[in-house]
Simulated assay, not measured.
Amino acid sequence: MPYGLKDEDFAKIQNKIAKKLYEIPSLDRAAFLVECTEQELREAMSELRKTPKSKGKIEAVERELRNRGNKNKKTKFFPNDLEEKRFAGEWTKVCGRIRGNERC
């Protein structure tokens, strides 16, 4: 029995991930979504957007995709290349002073 969805609306869902999200309780969604691939989640999103009463499920999938995106991001310390080059030059000068010569 799907949670919060009519049987005829549930029968229209073609995506297995979207179907499973209606079958499991909301507390178990996060654990289930962790096991899915990013491609599967994106396909489920398109199906969920067509289905009524799927706001909470869409939010759960979006949250999982955001979490994966944040883990894959590379931390950028300098806002642009010029500042990075400036820092590298200053760092080289400081290294030279520490070692006793002017260049590293």
Rank of each mutant, 00 (worst) to 15 (best):
E59H: 05
L65I: 02
K53M: 09
K71N: 11
E43Q: 10
K6Y: 10
F78Q: 07
I24V: 14
K76L: 11
N101G: 04
C104V: 05
L27Y: 05
K74S: 09
Q14N: 09
P2W: 03
L48G: 03
E8D: 12
R66W: 05
G89Q: 14
A31V: 07
E62K: 14
R42K: 15
E102H: 04
G100Q: 09
K16Y: 04
I17H: 06
V34Y: 10
E35K: 05
P79H: 07
W91T: 01
N72W: 01
G89C: 07
Y22P: 01
G100Y: 11
K6A: 14
R103H: 04
T37Q: 04
V61R: 03
A44S: 14
I98R: 11
G56A: 06
R66K: 09
E83A: 15
D81F: 13
A44N: 12
K71Y: 07
A18M: 08
L5W: 09
G100R: 09
T92V: 05
C104H: 04
G4C: 08
G100E: 04
E64S: 05
A30N: 08
E90G: 12
P52Q: 03
R42P: 08
T75M: 09
K76A: 11
Q39E: 14
L65P: 01
N72E: 10
T75D: 12
I17Y: 11
L65F: 01
T51I: 03
E23C: 02
L27F: 05
A44L: 12
D28S: 10
I98Q: 08
V61A: 02
I13N: 02
K50N: 07
K57M: 03
E8H: 10
M45D: 02
I98F: 13
K85A: 06
